[in-house]
Each structure stands twice: as structure tokens, then as C-alpha cells.
């Protein structure tokens, strides 16, 4: 194991400052500083608040990761960093720090894709992936189905949300029913006391015609509006809003459409492995439904632990390790971060 290069990964695409250390597919450190508490009163991530927090957290998180791995800076063989996609100003803090780190250490630098990094994180949990795999990425900023044919070189987008990310829908619905940001954990807690079948909310883009044009795409803004209408109608009629039932019904609608389309993608593309990742993959109902539907369809489901599902530097180090293993050329020192980096670009030039 120790003959594999030590890769340091930096992630700053949203509100977590992550620094991870990896050798091959072995996780050595995963230090994360989150600015989530600073965003609570705004009901969502404020890019400037996140960017300021990244600058303050970067060096301390770097030191924390090294301490966690029992490694020194001199042991690092290469630096990987999220080049995109993500919040423009937030990405620039990580990319600037990574470039300075690479120059100061005189080591190669790899600017890599955040989305593919989420898939690479799974290799730290259960070992090398047998590509091709379908990945369902669900977070506050992303809702995508990817086809990953080669983790270091080839990924394509099969489908994505046309409007809100799933995690964003959780946040907005939480607010509608008086729950706090971030919506994911709070809706899950409320849903535990509710009946998921009591209210049937719509499943976006699942009608026959939508399935033709948007086979693997998602839409959550209609679902959010349906919940808002239901809640407001109840309030107008003077009925108490059954928060548990609304939360459970909403959560069921999201989990249903996500898993249904991801399984469909596996079946139609003849793929036998699915990776579930992203912050919303922490949702227990989503995990459970994905597991049971994959099992029923004969698909192997792979998912990393929660700390590797949410944004982190170890996933970027893991992707960097895969890229280094292939002897791919490092990124040039003048590469730009790209807030809308396409998933097809695993490594920037």
C-alpha cells in the first residue's frame, strides 16, 4: 500500500472545506470544515458566506488532515482539487490554495471533476469499482444520473434535474412546514412519525410523454408547489397541518422517482452496479428504497459511509489517485475553475 503515491485532495465547491489524503483506494484522512451553521438563518447556502469560510478554514483543515493521516507535507506526491462544477467564488479559493500548495511542494496538480469525485469516493469504502457503473448523485446542489465507463477518463450525463436539486426541494419543503434548514435531516425526522401513503404527491417527469423526452431527468419544482398548495389549503380551511404525513409523503415522492429512474437507467443500459452518493444519500428512506429496488432488479448497490457521501476532500484525492494511476498528464498551472464543468471532463487540461 505504501508504494502507492500519497494524494492530497482539496474540495471547496459548496459549503464544506474538505482536505483528504488517499493512497490508491485506501483512505488515510478526511478532514472537513462546514460553514452550514452560518447559512441556517438564510435558509440556504449564501455563496459569499461560503467563500469567506473556505478561506478561513483552508490552512487549518490542511493541517488537520495531515495530522489525521500521520503524514507530513513532504510525504505528499500529488495534489488534486475540485475544478468544478460548483459555486464560482468558492471553487476559486480551493483552486488557488491547491496551486500554491503544488508550487510550494513542487508536485503535480490535478484539477478534477466534483461529480466524478463523488463516485470515486465509493472506492475508498468497498475497493475498486468494476466499471461501467451508473451513479445516482443526490445533494443540495446536484441531482444527476451518470454513466461512468472509466472513473479516470470517461463519464457521461444520462439525466439531471431540470429545476431544483433534490436537496434544495427538501430545504424548501421543510420551510413550508415550519422545519429548519437544512431540510434533509429535519424532514426525515418528521417523516418518521408520518404515514408516507396518507398524501400522494406527484412524481415529476414520470408520465408517458415526459418519459420520452426526459427519460432520466428529474423535476422537483412541481412537487414543491404541490406541497405548498396542500399545506396552504389545509391552513385556509383551518385544519392543522399533519407535518409528519406531509414530510413522509414528500420524502416518498422524491425517493420513488429518484430510485425508479436510476434503476431504469441500469436496466436499459445493461449496467449491473449502481453507486449512490451525495449528501441526500444520507436519507434513510432513499437508501432503503434504492437497496430494495436494486435487489429486486439484480443490481449491485454500492454506497460509501455518510462522511464520504457529503462533499469532502478524500473523494477528490480518490479521483486524483485514479488519474495518477493511469499516468494521465497533470493539469497546467494556469487552468481555470469552471462553475459548470461538464461531467464528461473528468480531468482539466
Amino acid at each position: 500500500m505504501s508504494d502507492q503515491p500519497l494524494i492530497l485532495g482539496i474540495e471547496t465547491s459548496c459549503d464544506e472545506t474538505g482536505v483528504g489524503l488517499v493512497r490508491g483506494t485506501t483512505l488515510l484522512a478526511n478532514a472537513v470544515a462546514s460553514s452550514v451553521d452560518e447559512h441556517v438563518r438564510f435558509g440556504g447556502v449564501v455563496p459569499e458566506v461560503a467563500s469567506r469560510a473556505h478561506l478561513e478554514a483552508m490552512v487549518p483543515t490542511l493541517h488537520r488532515a495531515l495530522a489525521e493521516a500521520g503524514a507530513g507535507l513532504g510525504d505528499v506526491d500529488a495534489v488534486a482539487v475540485t475544478a468544478g462544477p460548483g459555486l464560482a467564488g468558492a471553487l476559486m479559493v480551493g483552486v488557488s490554495a491547491a496551486k500554491a500548495l503544488a508550487v510550494a511542494l513542487d508536485k503535480p496538480l490535478y484539477g478534477v471533476n466534483h461529480l466524478v469525485g463523488h463516485v470515486a469516493a465509493e472506492q475508498l469504502e468497498n475497493g475498486p469499482l468494476a466499471e461501467p457503473v451508473v451513479a445516482l448523485l443526490v445533494s443540495g446542489g446536484h441531482t444527476e444520473i451518470l454513466l461512468v465507463e472509466d472513473i479516470a477518463t470517461s463519464a457521461t450525463l444520462l439525466g439531471q434535474t431540470l429545476d431544483d436539486a433534490a436537496g434544495e426541494a427538501f430545504d424548501k419543503v421543510a420551510r413550508l412546514i415550519g422545519l429548519k434548514y437544512p431540510g434533509g435531516p429535519n424532514i426525515q425526522r418528521a417523516a418518521a412519525d408520518g404515514d408516507p401513503g396518507a398524501i400522494r404527491f406527484p412524481r415529476g417527469l414520470t408520465g408517458q410523454r415526459d418519459l420520452e423526452r426526459h427519460r432520466y431527468d428529474f423535476s422537483f419544482s412541481g412537487l414543491k408547489t404541490a406541497v405548498a398548495r396542500w399545506v396552504e389549503t389545509a391552513e385556509r380551511e383551518g385544519r392543522a397541518v399533519p407535518v409528519g404525513d406531509v414530510a413522509a409523503g414528500f420524502q416518498e415522492a422524491v425517493a420513488d422517482v429518484l430510485t425508479r429512474k436510476a434503476v431504469l437507467a441500469c436496466q436499459e443500459r445493461g449496467i449491473s452496479t449502481m453507486v449512490l452518493a451525495g449528501g441526500v444519500a444520507a436519507n434513510a428512506r432513499l437508501r432503503e428504497l434504492t437497496r430494495s429496488r436494486c435487489a429486486a432488479a439484480g443490481i449491485e448497490l454500492r454506497q460509501p459511509r455518510f462522511s464520504l457521501c457529503t462533499d469532502n476532500g478524500a473523494m477528490i484525492a480518490a479521483l486524483g489517485a485514479a488519474v495518477v494511476e493511469r499516468d494521465l498528464p497533470p493539469s497546467s498551472l494556469d487552468f481555470a475553475s469552471d462553475s459548470s464543468l461538464p461531467v464528461t471532463q473528468v480531468l482539466v487540461g
Binding site: V59, V93, S96
Partner: peptide
């Protein structure tokens, strides 16, 4: 970010 990182 660059100056702080190089300094560290």
C-alpha cells in the same frame, strides 16, 4: 489563499 497556503 495562495499566500497563506505557501506560508503554511
Amino acid at each position: 489563499a495562495a499566500a497563506r497556503t505557501m506560508g503554511a
